[in-house]
Computed example of a mutant assay.
Amino acid sequence: MVEKARAPAWYWIVAVLAVIWNGFGCFDYVMTVTRNVAYLSAFPREYVAYLDTLPLWLVGFWALGVGGGLAGALLLLRRARLAAAAFGVSLLGLVVTSVYQWRDTEAPAISSADVAISVAIWLIALALLLFSLRMLRAGVLR
């Protein structure tokens, strides 16, 4: 049996923060697709109306993005090698949904806060994928 490398304390901090971050992404997804009135009341009406026009296949890729991210984070907690694959699936979902939204001429105007959130999502998704690959190579993930 191959002995796995010891996970440093900062590994666990990253894994827990990844669960919290991706858990919020899943919460946002569920509240949005179930049309939770209280949650959606914080968004502009035109944005909520736009959500109703999204094709089902795109909503599926959104689910892959947030679900893959949460799965990857939970797999980090288990120190499972499949974490990297899950983060890869998450990134695929992010790529497809982002490209669709950037190209959609009917999408509502975005604010600088929206751009900042999108940049943060991209940076964190890429960082988690790279982190999981590094931990896989280091033998922390089994």
Rank of each mutant, 00 (worst) to 15 (best):
M135W: 12
W21N: 08
V30C: 02
Y29P: 10
F27W: 15
I121E: 09
G139P: 11
L133A: 01
L126Q: 00
A5F: 03
Y47Q: 11
I20Y: 04
G69K: 03
T53A: 07
L75S: 07
P8I: 00
F27Q: 09
L17M: 13
V66D: 08
V59T: 13
L141Y: 10
D104K: 07
E46Y: 01
A9F: 12
R78Q: 15
R6Q: 14
A85F: 12
F87A: 03
L133I: 02
A73R: 06
W57Y: 14
M31T: 09
G139V: 05
V66H: 05
L91G: 06
Y29G: 07
V59G: 01
L129R: 03
R79S: 09
L126N: 04
R81V: 03
W21L: 06
L51A: 05
L74K: 08
Q101E: 07
L141T: 07
C26L: 15
L70K: 06
D28Q: 09
I110T: 15
W12V: 06
F61G: 05
D114M: 05
S90L: 00
A86P: 14
Y11R: 07
L51N: 07
A42W: 05
L92T: 14
V33R: 11
V89E: 00
Y29I: 02
L76P: 15
L75P: 15
R78Y: 10
R45C: 00
F24N: 12
A86N: 08
A80K: 11
L17V: 08
L91S: 06
L54F: 09
G88E: 04
V59E: 00
S41H: 13
G67H: 01
R137L: 06
L77C: 13
G139Q: 04
G65C: 02
S118W: 12
S112E: 08
R35Y: 03
L51T: 00
V96A: 02
V19M: 01
R78A: 15
F43I: 01
A73Y: 08
L82H: 12
S98E: 00
S98C: 02
W21A: 11
V33T: 14
G67E: 00
V99F: 08
L17S: 11
E3Y: 10
V115A: 12
L123D: 00
A125N: 14
F61D: 02
G93A: 02
V66L: 02
L91A: 07
M1E: 11
P8A: 04
W57M: 00
G67K: 01
F61R: 05
E46P: 04
L64R: 00
E46D: 15
D28F: 14
S41D: 14
V30M: 06
A9P: 15
D52E: 10
L129T: 02
A15H: 09
F24E: 10
D104V: 05
A7W: 08
T53M: 04
G69R: 02
A138P: 03
L64V: 05
T97Y: 01
S132H: 02
S90E: 08
L130Y: 08
V48I: 06
W102R: 08
D28R: 02
V119Q: 03
P8H: 06
V119S: 05
A83N: 10
M135K: 13
W122E: 00
A42Q: 12
Q101G: 03
T97V: 12
M31W: 07
V19I: 08
E106A: 15
V140I: 14
W102Y: 12
S41K: 10
D104I: 02
A84D: 04
C26E: 10
L141D: 07
S98T: 15
